[in-house]
């Protein structure tokens, strides 16, 4: 593996330039190989705790998935495999319209926050030290401030600037809290790029925008895509902030299912929950693969 990775990939000039010095990778290999057998013997019980905890994380969700295929009218009594609740959900007008609102908000917020994040990342090295500290804090604040507080604060703010709850405030708020999530992977991807690419392109006569368009953006693409995917999931999932900002006509999917869940178990919720779960699995796997492929380059 070491030999393979140390050789420049036969993929062409760009790859050859990009081959990182192999020293940087060595500790990573050692970490996996040495302690493996040793640690497991020496810390008994770790494996049990971990596996039980992972089961704790997954079993409840697997039960929801299983019950989404239940044929009966009761959410909790198994009456044979059936897709009837899927059919019911896919034809349920309220669920469809709530999903539409969620998708529209998420689509706009994803594009907007990703564009903002890319521009910020490409320019952030030029911020002064204080400027970058302040802006990092502001941009990361939505992650740290309790969501309820962010929700009521945004509602108060929206009212103050003369907007009524509805679609526009939803889009604005979602864009804002998606920026840090979109930025995480773009920033990580950017940090892994070799500046030599851009300098050689410039030396070879590429104009500033050509360097950005033809070299920077393509290299940044795995980060951009995974950042956009995460922003999309965060927007699709948000309940707390949306709950304060939505109006009757702009009920998002999480708000709608919160109403259903509040009344107790419900076979339709099993189906919607399963679909949202699949979304999380797909997006998380895709982002992980994208970032990992980039790390290997």
């Amino acid at each position: 593996m070491t030999i393979l990775e140390a050789q420049p990939a036969p993929g062409g000039a760009a790859d050859a330039i990009g081959a990182e010095p192999q020293e940087g990778r060595r500790p990573r290999l050692m970490r996996g190989s040495i302690p493996h057998s040793l640690m497991l013997n020496r810390f008994p019980g770790l494996g049990t705790i971990s596996l039980v905890s992972l089961a704790f994380l997954y079993v409840p969700m697997l039960i929801v998935m299983a019950f989404s295929f239940n044929g009966g009218n009761q959410a909790l009594i198994w009456q044979g495999f059936s897709l009837r609740w899927y059919a019911r959900v896919f034809t349920d007008a309220s669920i469809i319209s709530a999903t539409k609102v969620s998708l529209q908000v998420a689509a706009i917020a994803t594009v907007a926050s990703t564009v903002l994040a890319v521009l910020y990342v490409l320019a952030m090295d030029r911020l002064s030290r204080a400027g970058s500290a302040i802006s990092t804090t502001i941009l990361a604040a939505p992650i740290v401030v309790p969501e309820v507080v962010m929700g009521v604060a945004t509602l108060a703010f929206i009212r103050l600037i003369g907007l009524a709850p509805g679609f526009v405030p939803l889009v604005l708020a979602h864009t804002s809290f998606c920026v840090p999530f979109a930025m995480m992977n773009i920033r990580a991807c950017y940090a892994g790029l070799n500046p030599a690419y851009f300098e050689s392109a410039a030396d070879l006569g590429a104009t500033h925008w050509t360097v950005i368009r033809r070299i920077m953006l393509p290299l940044l693409m795995p980060g951009i895509i995974s950042g956009a995917l995460l922003a999309f999931v965060v927007s699709m999932d948000d309940f707390m902030i949306s709950n304060f900002l939505a109006s009757a006509g702009s009920t998002t999917l999480p708000i709608y299912i919160f109403g259903l869940i509040r009344k107790g178990v419900n076979p339709s919720v099993n189906v919607v929950a399963t679909l949202l779960l699949i979304l999380a699995v797909v997006v998380t796997t895709a982002t992980t693969l994208l970032t990992r492929r980039q790390a290997k380059k």
Partner: peptide
């Protein structure tokens, strides 16, 4: 090369500041 001027960082900061 490959970077943008500091002005391009402002939209994100502005959105953070305002919202």
């Amino acid at each position: 090369p490959g970077q943008l001027g500091v002005a391009f960082a402002t939209p994100a900061i502005l959105v953070g500041l305002v919202f």
